[in-house]
Design a protein around this nucleic acid. Sequence first.
DNA 1: ATGGCAATGTTTCATTGA
Length: 257
Amino acid sequence: MLIAAWNVNSLNMRLPRLLAWLAANRPDIVCLQETKLEDAKFPVLETTAAGYTAHFAGQKTYNGVAILVRSDLAASEVAMGIPGFDDEQKRVIAATIAGIRIVGVYVPNGQAVASDKYRYKLAWYAALADMLRGELARHPALAVLGDFNVAPEDRDVHDPALWAGQVLCSDPERAAFRALLDAGLSDSFRLFEQPERTFSWWDYRQLAFPKNNGLRIDHILLSPALASRCAASRIDRAARKGEKPSDHAPVLVELRD
DNA sequence: ATGGCAATGTTTCATTGA
């Protein structure tokens, strides 16, 4: 089973790329972030024609998440948002597919350390951790994937000195991310030997991508039951190349049956 | 095997992202 997450930075702009990527990779499940679409404008016809059933929670301009499920699989218990956490922003969607609980997340960016948006990010992370403890109790096979907007360690940063203490790399954010691991989840990427300087996001500016000046901020977290089934975890850097790319690359895991 | 911000709406600039 192939499961992926991709921050597409506008599904409108990225639909041709997404469809080509689905055709080339045929994942079973894909979580999308930053669709930036109202639900009425979700490209249901196109994703259906591509062989996927779409579940989505969107809004105009910002945020927006979706789960695409290959049409031969059924999704149940579809849920949006974080229970008990009042949030206008569409950042979480969950579903149960083939016995696996999938939680797709688009964590707030935080903008700048000590800003209101930064405080919101930390509160949001705490609420997510609460939610995931409950999900883990109910679903032994749990995958939490998407854009976490945190580079967990210095090796996930192209220039740790440049980014030290900055948003996406600050200690409170890293602690908030680590709390998800402490709840019983594994960063699937680190279950395997990985090439140095592997990232999932590159700024559109300053030749960041060709210079590989990136961050690893998109992650797939797995419960112990799924970590033991995980055969590979990788980042599809090639999907960041060419014309009109998203600034993020897709992240993927392969699970054994 | 790459390219010097991009996407959106309030549109001809401001806001946000990471």
